[in-house]
């Protein structure tokens, strides 16, 4: 049989080897699928619940109440001079967005196993959709923040314009981690059990219930630069939120700078690892 393929521009199917980059063009061509998967996630998330989308607000709100009682009043954790409820709620918004995006995307491939085994599409769309669909909850919880700020008479300055950037930053860190974890989860279901615990630890490493200024002061006392703390990308995001919305005084520049290096690396390696594992998803999931 003739072994030279005829010319023209075909789809080539062959065993891939080594590390290949994610095919961004292909993902772009499937952007409508991304949209539909996000839309499906949003649409079905609160089906069959009595309170519906109210949960998006209740979760950070109830957490804020608990934190205010235990950390704000009992333990008297500082809050950089802001009312503790506001201080923790502002931080809980990006944190919950991040934690849920990671949690959902880590499970996403396994949950869509019937899709993965039966239809072709760039698989990265699946974890990406889980990350993006959390934004709707975030937006709802954000409305409640407006009310809370009005109640405490806090008026944000021009810095608030940076918020979209911070949200994007948070999402890309979550997407990087999500690609790693969703691909790992296909092979090793350990992820399912380890993740909730790790996220809990991660929250304590992030200034959600306590002010980041304390950690930075501690670093300075030991002649260590503040950007070390920022290696956890969520530190920059959370302190950035306080800075943009409440006018916090923690210098967020170095935190965000080092955080973006980490989340950039996470995103890049996540994309490569994902692409490498992608070819066996259908067999392994």
């Amino acid at each position: 049989m003739d072994t030279t393929p005829p010319d023209k521009f075909p789809i080539v199917i062959r065993p891939a080897s080594g590390w290949i980059p994610l095919n961004v063009g292909e993902i772009w061509r499937y952007r409508e699928l991304l949209y539909f998967l996000v839309w499906r996630d949003v649409k079905v998330r609160y089906k069959q619940t009595a309170l519906g989308a109210l949960w998006a607000v209740l979760q950070p709100f109830l957490a804020m109440l608990v934190f205010t009682f235990f950390f704000g009043s009992l333990a008297n954790v500082g809050s950089d001079g802001f009312p503790y409820p506001l201080f923790s709620y502002v931080a809980l918004l990006p944190w919950i967005l991040f934690a849920q995006a990671i949690g959902q995307s880590a499970e996403s491939l396994v949950k869509s196993s019937n899709l993965v085994q039966k239809v072709y599409f760039p698989r990265a769309i699946v974890p990406a959709a889980s990350v993006v669909s959390g934004v709707v909850d975030f937006a709802l919880a954000f409305l409640a923040l407006g009310a809370l700020m009005a109640y405490y008479g806090v008026r944000p300055g021009l810095a608030v314009l940076w918020l979209p950037v911070l949200v994007l930053f948070c999402l890309s860190a979550a997407l990087g981690a999500g690609m790693w974890l969703s691909a790992l989860n296909v092979e090793y279901r350990d992820v399912r059990y380890a993740l909730p615990f790790c996220l809990q630890l991660w929250m304590f490493a992030t200034p959600v219930i306590y002010p980041g200024s304390g950690v930075i002061a501690w670093l300075e006392r030991h002649d260590l630069p503040a950007w070390l703390y920022g290696l956890n990308p969520m530190v920059g995001v959370v302190e950035g939120f306080r800075w943009a919305l409440l006018g916090g005084s923690v210098p967020v520049g170095p935190l965000i700078a080092s955080g973006s290096v980490v989340s950039g690396l996470l995103l890049l390696t996540g994309a490569y690892y994902f692409r490498r594992m992608e070819r066996t998803f259908a067999d392994a999931v």
């Binding site: 393929p5 199917i13 899709l115 039966k118 239809v119 072709y120 259908a282």
Partner: peptide
């Protein structure tokens, strides 16, 4: 239909592929 990769060999396909491998997916 590119759901799984071959271990060896190569295939080329000209045109958009639709597959009805199992209906009702998703």
């Amino acid at each position: 239909s590119r759901i799984t990769e071959p271990t060896e060999g190569e295939a080329r396909i000209w045109g958009r592929v639709g597959s009805l491998l199992e209906v009702g997916t998703g």
